[in-house]
């Protein structure tokens, strides 16, 4: 009994995972182009949310991931148009550049914490937006840049690209959760000082987390640029890009893969639906959800679900012992 309950849950988890991956692989052959676009959007936000969560797990909440999203978008478009790199290579370069920038920034940015870090990152994204608008020679200014469509406009290939990126992100996070760094990161979140007193290399972990988080966000930005074939400063450095992962994580449940996915899927679909329904103000629901989440559901949907699940499981554990 003692071992069977966790084993059963693990089996359920694995089974769900396999079925989900199979369904996702089959999806493009089952749905129309419109639905496929939605699926791509959902996956895009799932990666953004999970990437953001990697940094959040160390205890720093960024309100400015649009900086890396937009940077990735511009770098990829410029790399492919001016340097003539292939699109996939351009997207990788975008990720590397974003990660590199984050590495450089971390020594400066992590000098502040909490709300000040949030405001700092927000301001940084805005600075990049201004740069993108004003450096017209390179970026085309407010007019933006257009790019060749990704995979020659083959939405199914685009879908598989973003799906693989999502699975890669999930796999990375899952593998990380099995190493000692998972413990180090969780401990840092409680208190970086105390964590350091127990030998946890706080500074390198934080730097790497920020870089990985930024790199993945940069790749998504690059993907977005090629997928939509057009970027401008307003769309690439949109505050909404910074805020989406915060909202999705908090709604779904912070610091967990499942929470991030739940948040990204639910809110992206909701938002897409509302946007097609209302001309203005579709973000009202977003705002209200945030308020309600913080007031009544601070651990998010996943926190609620896993809380209920563990409450159901705990009597079994007592019987067993």
């Amino acid at each position: 009994m003692t071992s069977s309950a966790p084993a059963r849950w693990r089996f359920l988890g694995t089974a769900t995972g396999i079925i989900a991956v199979a369904a996702l692989a089959a999806l493009p052959f089952l749905v129309d182009a419109y639905m496929l676009h939605w699926a791509i959007t959902v996956l895009k936000f799932a990666v953004l949310t999970l990437a953001w969560d990697i940094l959040a797990r160390t205890g720093q909440v960024s309100f400015g991931h649009a900086a890396f999203f937009g940077l990735g978008a511009y770098v990829a478009v410029l790399a492919s148009s001016t340097l003539g790199l292939g699109q996939i290579l351009s997207m990788l370069v975008a990720g590397v550049v974003a990660a590199g920038l984050a590495t450089c920034l971390s020594a400066l940015f992590f000098r502040v914490r909490g709300i000040y870090f949030a405001i700092l990152t927000l301001a940084f994204a805005e600075v990049l937006k201004v740069c993108a608008t004003m450096l017209t020679g390179m970026t085309g200014g407010a007019m933006g840049l257009s790019a060749r469509p990704l995979f020659g406009g083959d939405a199914v290939k685009s879908y598989f690209f973003i799906l693989i990126l999502a699975l890669f992100t999930i796999a990375t996070m899952w593998l990380l959760s099995r190493t000692r760094y998972h413990f180090g990161i969780t401990a840092m979140r409680s208190s970086p000082e105390v964590a350091a007193a127990f030998g946890i290399p706080v500074v390198p972990i934080r730097t790497i987390a920020y870089s990985v988080s930024a790199g993945l966000t940069g790749v998504v930005g690059a993907f977005y640029a090629f997928y939509t074939t057009y970027i401008n400063p307003e769309s690439a450095f949109d505050v909404a890009i910074s805020v989406a992962p915060v909202i999705m994580s908090i709604f779904g449940g912070l610091y967990s893969i499942a929470g991030g996915i739940i948040g990204a899927v639910t809110l992206t679909l909701l938002q897409e639906y509302l946007r097609t329904t209302f001309e203005y103000g579709s973000l009202i629901v977003y705002g209200l959800l945030l308020i309600v989440s913080i007031l009544f559901m601070p651990k998010g949907v996943w926190g609620l679900v896993s809380g209920l699940a563990s409450r159901q499981r705990s009597p079994a554990r007592e019987v067993a012992s």
């Binding site: 969780t186 208190s191 105390v194």
Partner: peptide, 19 residues
């Protein structure tokens, strides 16, 4: 100053992993 989001075993384990 325990790590409040980790279980007791994990608290000790964390120290063991980085000591």
């Amino acid at each position: 100053q325990l790590f409040e989001t980790l279980s007791i075993r994990e608290n000790i384990q964390t120290a063991a992993l980085f000591g």
